[in-house]
């Protein structure tokens, strides 16, 4: 088991692949939020978890946090820190989705597009997807050696 983990965190090509995949996901996920902050603010409101005064500021800042996280991962700028930030964001999404799943609250995840009229696109598959991405993000966080 330890040997397998070592293979993952010491292979620079696996680290590069993980960073590129995560980076592309974050950059892609940020675009529709940047172009339509109003719709994204409504998605955040729909989660039913955030105080009203924080919703707009979150909708203004979070898309750029995703964009820079993605770009930094792709370009290899502060790669470990960018990966840590990616993990923090995934953890936040996982918690938000889990809380709403537990309390049976349907909402639009707003991950890669906005689904205004049918806001029931958040579910167990989103949780599984984010958990997989979280696992991928562990590679650049714990990578040991010289990155390519």
């Amino acid at each position: 088991m330890k040997k397998a983990a070592d293979l993952f965190i010491r292979n620079p090509w696996i680290d590069l692949a993980a960073r590129l995949c995560l980076g592309v996901v974050f950059v892609y996920a940020s675009f529709h939020k940047i172009t339509d902050p109003s719709a994204f603010a409504k998605v955040i409101y729909g989660y039913g978890l955030f105080p009203a005064v924080t919703i707009n500021v979150t909708a203004i800042v979070l898309p750029y946090l995703e964009l820079f996280t993605g770009l930094f991962l792709i370009l290899g700028v502060m790669p470990r820190s960018a990966a840590v930030l990616a993990e923090i964001l995934f953890l936040a999404f996982i918690i938000a989705i889990s809380v709403n799943l537990i309390r049976g609250h349907t909402f639009d995840c707003g991950c890669f597009s906005f689904n205004k009229e049918n806001p029931d696109s958040a579910g167990i598959e989103l949780l599984v997807r984010d958990l997989i991405w979280f696992a991928v993000g562990l590679v650049p966080v714990f990578f040991k050696g010289k990155r390519v």
């Binding site: 172009t35 902050p37 109003s38 603010a41 009203a52 919703i55 707009n56 500021v57 203004i60």
Partner: peptide, 8 residues
């Protein structure tokens, strides 16, 4: 032009 207020 699609900017939003700081508090909604």
């Amino acid at each position: 032009p699609s900017g939003i207020a700081l508090v909604g």
